[in-house]
């Protein structure tokens, strides 16, 4: 807990972002647009679940300032994950 936990939220966001953006670019390049929607939604659900677990653990551990930082970063990451995933519901995959 502590510094590592705060950074974990960033890592989850970064992986989600890379997976969503890179996965979509790859899927379109190889002509498999149908996998984009499940990929993005799946990755987002997993990322949100991990961020939730992170926030709960950080809160329970009473990590003081760093615990609060971890929760805050998880919250910002979750917001970004939700927003970044939303377009897949509205726009064509490629």
């Amino acid at each position: 807990m502590g510094v590592a936990a705060s950074l974990l939220g960033i890592v989850i966001w970064a992986l989600h972002f890379g997976l969503v953006y890179g996965g979509q670019a790859l899927a379109c390049e190889v002509g498999r647009p149908s996998i984009v929607m499940p990929l993005v939604i799946g990755a987002s659900v997993v990322a949100l679940a991990l961020l939730l677990v992170l926030a709960v653990v950080a809160r329970r551990s009473r990590g003081g300032f760093l615990g609060g930082l971890a929760v805050g970063i998880a919250a910002f990451s979750a917001l970004a994950v939700v927003w970044e995933a939303a377009p897949v519901l509205a726009l064509p995959a490629c």
Partner: peptide, 29 residues
């Protein structure tokens, strides 16, 4: 979060609209 919006400068380069929307959302975030 600021690392997730570089394509923000490339909206007119012909990148598919879904990719653009990812970056648009990241810019909002």
């Amino acid at each position: 979060l600021s690392f997730g919006l570089w394509v923000h400068h490339m909206y007119a380069t012909g990148i598919p609209s879904l990719s653009l929307a990812f970056f648009s959302a990241a810019s909002f975030a």
